[in-house]
């Protein structure tokens, strides 16, 4: 009796299991066939703010914005420095021609005055020679005065007057010689390149150098500013791209997305979405497409046979779902219910 019961239970269980496998196999094959023929299915997916992709994106946005701010600051500093250098350069460049003109004028005047002073010097030398001759003669007169005084030809006061006259003449000759030497010195200064001239030339060269250095610095600062501006542009583009990803939408509060294979080429915002019972029968409208992202995505094909077609290509779309539970369905359908009911 017990054996019969066990056999009965075994028989029933075995039959149920085998028919279950048969039904499952038929269902699986039917499902496979359906998805091969149907081109309006999409795979819903819920992305939360805890999603690694979202966190990664948030981190990238922060990092990018920080880099952008830092670059903007650098660019601003560069611009200010460049403006200052340009103003300084302008001042120096205005001063430089004046200096060059002054040097030219001075050189011309020196040359003219030097020639005239040389002529005067020649006359002074001749005059001094005459004075020297007169002093020698005066020295002879002084001896004569002493002799005349000793013999009493002249009085002491006359002798003193005559001696003073002789001393004055000597002093005049001496001063004349000194003046001639000074004149020669002046001529030397006017006609040769002296240290003062060199100082002036040095100042001119220094001014030229400052202007050139400023030119180089301005050019470098200009290049840096351009590079900064280029990077700023790139970072702005990157931020725009990041803002256009589904993860950015998640950061702004969106949750429901769907992978749309390329087989469906008519998807656009507003396309109605249907969810079905038993995967693809008895369907109801649950929402519509809110946005279609342009970047290509590759997803594991939920219905394909492994090793034969493991991934499919498509895009991600954001969904507005009135029924949030529809996001948990294995697949959803666009446009209409697959079997019209």
């Amino acid at each position: 009796m017990m054996n019969k019961l066990i056999l009965f239970i075994y028989h029933i269980s075995g039959t149920i299991l085998l028919y279950g496998v048969l039904v499952w196999t038929l269902w699986f094959c039917g499902k496979l066939l359906f998805y091969v023929c149907n081109d309006s299915w999409i795979v819903p997916t819920v992305i939360t703010q805890e999603d690694p992709g979202v966190l990664d994106l948030a981190q990238k946005v922060v990092t990018t914005r920080q880099a952008l701010d830092a670059l903007r600051l650098d660019a601003l500093k560069n611009k200010e420095a460049m403006d200052e250098m340009r103003a300084h350069r302008l001042q120096l460049s205005r001063l430089y021609p004046k200096l060059v003109a002054a040097i030219g004028t001075e050189a011309f005047a020196n040359s003219d005055n030097g020639n005239r002073l040389s002529a005067l010097d020649a006359r002074a030398i001749a005059k001094n020679e005459k004075l020297a001759q007169a002093i020698e003669e005066a020295n002879g007169v002084a001896t004569q005065i002493d002799e005349d005084l000793s013999v009493g030809l002249i009085t002491k006061s006359d002798a003193a007057v005559k001696r003073e006259q002789i001393a004055q003449g000597s002093t005049s000759a001496l001063e004349s010689e000194i003046n001639e030497v000074l004149l020669q010195d002046q001529i030397l200064q006017k006609t040769t390149t002296g240290t003062q001239t060199l100082d002036v030339l040095d100042k001119r060269a220094e001014l030229r150098s400052q202007i050139d250095t400023l030119d180089i610095s301005i050019a470098a600062a200009d290049r840096q500013l351009k590079a900064d501006n280029f990077q700023i542009g790139q970072l702005k583009e990157a931020l725009t791209l990041l803002d256009n990803t589904p993860y950015a939408a998640v950061l702004n509060g969106a949750r429901n997305f769907a992978f749309v294979p390329y087989v469906d080429g008519t998807i656009e915002p507003g396309t109605p979405i249907f969810a079905c019972y038993a995967e693809f029968v008895i369907c109801r409208r649950v929402g519509e497409i809110a946005r279609v992202y342009s970047d290509e995505e590759r997803e594991q094909n939920p219905i394909s046979i492994p090793l034969l077609s493991t991934t499919i290509r498509g895009v991600i779309a954001r969904m507005n779902l009135r029924d949030p539970s529809a996001a948990k369905s294995q697949t959803l359908f666009l446009h209409r219910a697959p079997f019209f009911f």
Binding site: L7, Y10, H11, S13, G14, T15, L17, L18, V21
Partner: peptide, 8 residues
Amino acid sequence: LCALCTLD
């Protein structure tokens, strides 16, 4: 599977 279910 079939053999396992049809031992009877």
